[in-house]
Simulated assay, not measured.
Amino acid sequence: MIVRIMGEGQWKLADSHFVELNKLDDELLEEMEGGDEDGFRRTLGALLGAVRRLGTPLPDDALEPSELILPAPESSLEEVREMLSDGGLIPG
């Protein structure tokens, strides 16, 4: 799976990491629905950190189609809300 973090680049992750990312995505969705700004910041950072930690960065000149696009770390709660599907940032 190729994941893009807006403003940073792309990472290649094994599909086996999807479970961990989806758990963080569920937490993020709950915090957004509850208006928990601090929790949102913490969990967004954890989600992006997991992508960086578990994935292999692609070269800056690589233009692979991203299967998942995540917001930049400085994105506001409202900006991320606009990116959401019914199931959060990560489908499934």
Score class of each variant (00 low, 15 high):
Gly49Thr: 13
Leu24Trp: 06
Phe18Ala: 01
Leu58Trp: 06
Gly34Leu: 07
Gly55Glu: 02
Glu64Tyr: 08
Leu58Tyr: 11
Asp60Cys: 09
Arg53Lys: 09
Asn22His: 02
Glu67Ile: 13
Leu29Cys: 01
Gly55Asn: 12
Ala46Met: 08
Phe18Trp: 10
Phe18Tyr: 15
Arg42Asn: 14
Leu29Val: 00
Glu27Ile: 10
Leu54Cys: 07
Leu21His: 01
Asp25Gln: 06
Glu31Val: 01
Glu37Phe: 12
Leu29Met: 13
Glu30Thr: 01
Pro57Leu: 11
Leu68Gly: 09
Val51Gly: 04
Phe18Glu: 10
Phe40Pro: 02
Ala46Ser: 05
Pro59Asn: 15
Leu68Glu: 08
Ala62Glu: 12
Leu21Gly: 05
Asp36Asn: 09
Leu58Ala: 06
Asp36Glu: 12
Lys23Asp: 04
Gly49Glu: 03
Thr56Leu: 08
Gly35Met: 04
Asp38Tyr: 02
Ala50Trp: 12
Glu20Thr: 14
Gly34Thr: 09
Thr56Lys: 15
Asn22Ala: 00
Leu54Thr: 03
Leu58Gln: 11
Pro65Ser: 13
Gly34Val: 08
Leu48Ile: 10
Asp25Ser: 03
Pro59Asp: 14
Glu30Gly: 08
Met32Thr: 08
Arg53Ser: 03
Thr43Asp: 04
Glu20Met: 06
Gly35Lys: 11
Leu24Met: 08
Arg52His: 11
Leu63Pro: 04
Arg42Asp: 05
Met32His: 14
Leu63Asp: 14
Pro65Trp: 13
Leu68Phe: 15
Val19Glu: 12
Lys23Trp: 05
Leu68Ile: 07
Val19Trp: 14
Ala62Gln: 11
Val19Tyr: 13
Glu27Cys: 03
Glu20Pro: 06
Leu44Ile: 05
Arg53Pro: 03
Thr56Pro: 04
Gly39Cys: 11
Gly39Trp: 10
Asp25Ala: 05
Gly39Ala: 15
Thr43Ala: 07
Arg53Leu: 02
Arg41Asp: 07
Asp38Gly: 06
Phe18Gly: 08
Thr56Met: 12
Leu24Glu: 00
Asp36Leu: 04
Gly55Phe: 05
Arg52Glu: 09
Gly35Thr: 15
Leu21Asn: 01
